[in-house]
Design a protein around this nucleic acid. Structure first.
Lengths: 153, 153
DNA sequence: GCATCATGTAATACGTAAAGTTACATGAAA
DNA sequence: TTTCATGTAACTTTACGTATTACATGATGC
C-alpha cells in the first residue's frame, strides 16, 4: 500500500453527498470511489462518531451530511479519522539512550512538529464549503467546454 | 513497517562517524543502531554515491565521512537517500476523471506541496555540524551530571 | 409478520515497502 | 594466502491500509 488515502476518500464522499439530496448508500459511494461498500462504512465510521454524518438502515437508508459545510474543516475530518500519522518519515527509536540518537531525534522532532503545525493550520482553514465551491466551479467550466465543443460542430 | 527511518538512521551513523577518528565498520555502526551490517551498507549506499561518505574494504576498512559537516544539510541527506516520500497521507487516485475528486485532489495537493516546501527549507537549514554540536552539548551535560552525582556520594 | 434493503462489524486475505536475514562474490591489507 | 570488510542479490518478516467474505442487526413497505 502506498499511502493512507482515507482523508481523500471521505472528502470525496462528503462532496458527493453534498451534491445529492437525500441519503446515499454505501454502495453508491463505493461506486463513485471505485471501491467497496464495506470500506466506505469502515472509513466513514469515524465521521459518524464525530457527528459529521448520519447513517440510516433500511429502505431509503444511507449516509447524510449532518453538519454545516461552512463550519467543518479538513482538520476536523482528519481528527474524526483518528488523526492518522501525517509523515512517512520518522525516528528509528522513540526514546533512545544513545546521546547521538537523542540529538538526531530532537532535531527531527522539532522540524516535524513545526511542519505538522503548519499542515494542521492549513487544514483548519479549508472548509468543506470551499471544496464544494471549487467543485461547482469545475462543473461549470466543464459544462462550458462541452457547450463550446457542440457549437464548434 | 511503521515509518521510514532511513534519514534518522544515516544521521545517527554520520554523527558516530564524526565523533570517531578512523573508519567505522558496518558492523560497528550496526551495533550502535541496533541493527544489521547489511542494512547499514544498503542504507549508506546512497550517501556514498552522493560523495558524502567513503567506504573501504579490507583491514582498517569501513566508512569515513568525505564531506564538510558545515556544508551538508539534512536536505542533502534526504536527496542522497533518493528523496523518499515525506507524507503518509495522499490522494486516492492521481489523475481522476471525477470532478469532485479533482477538486479534493487539488486542495490536498496544494496544501501538501506548501508544507513539503517548508520541510525542505528547514532541512536545508540544518547542517550536520549543527547536529554534531548539539550532541557535544548533550555529552557535556551528561558528564556534568555524572560528576555531580559522584560528588554527592 | 415477513421479505427486502441497508448498515455494523468481525475475520481473513492482499499489496506494498522498509527492515531483517542469509549467502556468496569482490577486493584490500597483514 | 588468509583474514577482514564491503557489495549485492535473494528471500523473509513486519506493519498497515485496503479489499473481500460472511453474517448479525435494524428499518421500511407490503
Amino acid at each position: 500500500m502506498k499511502r493512507d488515502s482515507r482523508l481523500s476518500s471521505v472528502l470525496h464522499a462528503l462532496l458527493h453527498m453534498a451534491a445529492n439530496d437525500g441519503p446515499m448508500t454505501s454502495e453508491a459511494l463505493a461506486h463513485c470511489m471505485h471501491t467497496n461498500p464495506v470500506v466506505v462504512r469502515r472509513t466513514m465510521a469515524g465521521l459518524r462518531q464525530a457527528g459529521l454524518v448520519r447513517s440510516e438502515k433500511g429502505h431509503n437508508g444511507g449516509w447524510t451530511i449532518a453538519c454545516d459545510l461552512n463550519a467543518v474543516t479538513l482538520r476536523d475530518i482528519h481528527a474524526a479519522l483518528g488523526e492518522p500519522a501525517v509523515f512517512a518519515i520518522g525516528n528509528r527509536n522513540a526514546a533512545p539512550e544513545c546521546l547521538v540518537e537523542q540529538a538526531v531525534n530532537a532535531a527531527l522532532d522539532d522540524t516535524f512538529r513545526e511542519v505538522e503545525t503548519l499542515l494542521m493550520e492549513r487544514f483548519g482553514r479549508l472548509t468543506l464549503a470551499q471544496l464544494a465551491e471549487d467543485f461547482t466551479g469545475r462543473l461549470a467550466a466543464h459544462h462550458e467546454k462541452i457547450r463550446s465543443q457542440q457549437n464548434a460542430v
